[in-house]
């Protein structure tokens, strides 16, 4: 694989971030509109913490909820895409350093990636 220069790295990361944020915002907006149509009553109280159900906590269940057209699941899928965006960015940095044969920084960015994936998968 040819080494990426700074310009290449910046372009890839910039496009990926834009794509991630726009996709996330679109999903959240769509889910939000659905949610507001389906919930026209008085607002729930958020004064006490209850915790969200498993369907809105687990990445796989969030995805399933969203494709079944559930409003809150759709919003949560957007937020999940948003959380994954910086993780994907770190992954691109691992690849970038690999093309530069910078072993030290492949290890450093790999470590950061591991911490991020740990938090997403084993967070609870």
């Amino acid at each position: 694989m040819r080494a990426w220069d700074d310009q290449r790295m910046d372009d890839i990361i910039s496009n990926m971030l834009r794509f991630g944020v726009l996709t996330a915002a679109a999903l959240v907006f769509l889910g939000g509109v659905m949610y507001l149509f389906q919930n026209q009553g008085p607002v729930a109280s958020y004064h006490h913490f209850h915790g969200e159900p498993i369907t809105l906590r687990d990445p796989v269940q969030i995805f399933l909820g969203a494709i079944h057209g559930r409003a809150r699941g759709m919003i949560q899928l957007g937020l999940l895409v948003l959380i994954i965006t910086p993780i994907a960015r770190v992954f691109m940095c691992v690849v970038g350093f690999f093309t530069q044969r910078d072993r030290l920084y492949v290890a450093v960015s790999g470590l950061v990636l591991a911490v991020l994936l740990y938090s997403l998968v084993f967070g609870h």
């Binding site: 949610y35 969200e52 949560q76 937020l79």
Partner: peptide, 9 residues
């Protein structure tokens, strides 16, 4: 997210 602190609405 996995602890349920993120309320989508």
């Amino acid at each position: 997210l996995s602890r349920g602190y993120i309320a989508p609405e």
